[in-house]
């Protein structure tokens, strides 16, 4: 039997902010039904990678293909078609403060479908039930706790039943019980709704609980992609530093260091 075609294929992706290179030729792929965790510390490049995967940033060097569409060469129409098939739950929630929770969740359905209003109402409330926010549809985002904002954002991200869900830092800033509930929910979404899920996180415990495979990113490079067991057993010193939360020694040559301090070429 042939292996399923990847939903995500990234080849040689480089990203720059000015003269600073953030991603150094990243390669990886994600197959349908997988929960992939992209793990890395702050400054590892994982947020930049996520922005490329969801089409907010176009690749300058290298390629990103989602559902077979190369985002760097796609027309606006093709990009829109891809975006309709993906859901994104942003770290801060990105809820619209002027809309109620229910209106926020229903927004993608109102914008992208011509479904009957009764169907939209049931679908959006169903997703609020799934994330344990049943009955909260009339509250405003400002009335929600941090964990509730994350769950409302997740409800909006999955309201169109996307085949591919991106979840940025699901457990950051949450108490351990709420974080564990979100991890459980991610697993159930994959199993019941057959979603392929990409989670970007720096939380090790969460990563080990939910991941089928983990891609470890450090200083813009992929150190390895493997199962939880493979990552834990890796002899790579940088991976072990990350797993043991040891601060990484910053290595920089003298010329670069001076240039950074003075802003001038040596």
């Amino acid at each position: 039997m042939n292996a399923p075609s990847p939903l995500i294929e990234v080849h040689g992706l480089q990203a720059w902010y000015g003269r600073r290179r953030i991603l150094h030729g990243v390669d990886f792929s994600v197959v349908p039904g997988e929960i992939r965790v992209i793990m890395g510390g702050s400054g590892s490049g994982k947020s930049t990678l996520l922005r490329h995967l969801i089409g907010l940033q176009r690749p300058r060097d290298g390629s990103v293909r989602i559902f077979g569409v190369e985002l760097g060469r796609a027309s606006e129409r093709e990009l829109l078609a891809v975006r309709r098939k993906i859901g994104v739950s942003f770290q801060g929630g990105a809820l619209l403060t002027s809309l109620s929770v229910g209106e926020n969740v229903a927004l993608p359905l109102r914008e992208h479908t011509r479904l009957d209003e009764s169907t939209i109402r049931i679908m959006s409330r169903l997703k609020l039930e799934v994330v344990n926010l049943g009955g909260f549809q009339d509250l405003m985002p400002s009335q929600l706790s941090g964990g509730m904002v994350k769950r409302a954002a997740l409800a909006r991200a999955i309201v169109m039943d996307p085949r591919l869900l991106f979840f940025d830092e699901p457990s950051a800033g949450l108490d351990p019980v709420v974080a564990a509930e979100l991890d459980e929910l991610i697993l159930r979404l994959r199993d019941a709704l057959r979603m392929t899920i990409v989670v970007v996180t720096h939380e090790l415990e969460s990563a080990f609980k939910i991941a089928d495979t983990i891609t470890v990113l450090d200083q813009g490079e992929i150190l390895m992609t493997g199962t939880v067991g493979e990552v834990r057993a890796s002899p790579n010193a940088r991976i072990q530093d990350l797993l043991n939360r040891r601060p990484r020694a910053v290595q920089v040559d003298a010329d670069t260091y001076l240039r950074r301090l003075t802003g001038e070429e040596a």
Binding site: L126, D161, L193
Partner: peptide, 11 residues
């Protein structure tokens, strides 16, 4: 079945 299908059954 996705949630639009479930919504049909709920209705």
């Amino acid at each position: 079945i996705d949630s639009s299908g479930i919504a049909a059954l709920v209705e």
